[in-house]
Amino acid sequence: MNAKELIELNNRKRKELTKENEEYYGNMLVYIRASMAVSEQQSEELLMELLDHIIEAQKEGKRAVDIFGENPSAYCDEMIKQLPKESGKSTAYFIVFLLVKLAGLIAVVNGIGDIIIHYFKDNDQTVYVGTAIVTFIIVACIIFLDVVVILKWLQQSVYKVSNKVKDFVLLSFIMTLSILGMIFLPRLLPNFGYVIEVGGFIYLIAGVATLSISKWLDRKYCITK
């Protein structure tokens, strides 16, 4: 059974839990899934084992907290420490896949924006390849950092009594900073590299093509499983 099938089965089986057990298990689930470096297959297999255990013990009137203890975050940390790491190769494939997808999306959005603007005024369609590549790298890095921050925050929030207002302010601040960074950092770049003229339609076609190819690659090599 691969990770995706395990997740689906997990979703179905979780419905058998009592409300109290569901809450306890649900927190463990988020906590373990949000830890990035570990093998997805192995962590899903572990989560399924834990779920099966609760379901069987529940029949004898036991509660999840009786089985796994009062300190689930320490318990989960102990297991996460033992889980095998995701292999470097599959992580690399996954990141490249995401980058290709991101490039495709940016091209599509850019293309549509360009076409709309072009209706109203004759906009500049000059693209400096070097600048474009560095801009892309900046955007990708910011998004990557955001994902890391959000996952970490999600993991912490499960077992920490958190201040909702503080969390909200902090997250909005990070998001605002990210968006400002994505818009203004590239403007600081000098124009360099090859100069090409790219109209909105070329952007759009290139973007759609990139997205289709990434989708096909995903299906063929099961990158997202």
């Binding site: 572990l46 084992e49 834990l50 099966d52 255990h53 069987e56 013990a57 009786d66 089985i67 796994f68 203890g69 318990y75 102990e78 297991m79 033992q82 889980l83």
Partner: peptide, 28 residues
Amino acid sequence: YGYELSQKLQQFGLNDVSEGSIYPILLR
């Protein structure tokens, strides 16, 4: 499998071992 293992341990009288503690050990 996991649950069976925890039952076996209890059958042998290791009642103080919390059931959950087998999983980190199995992983290790």
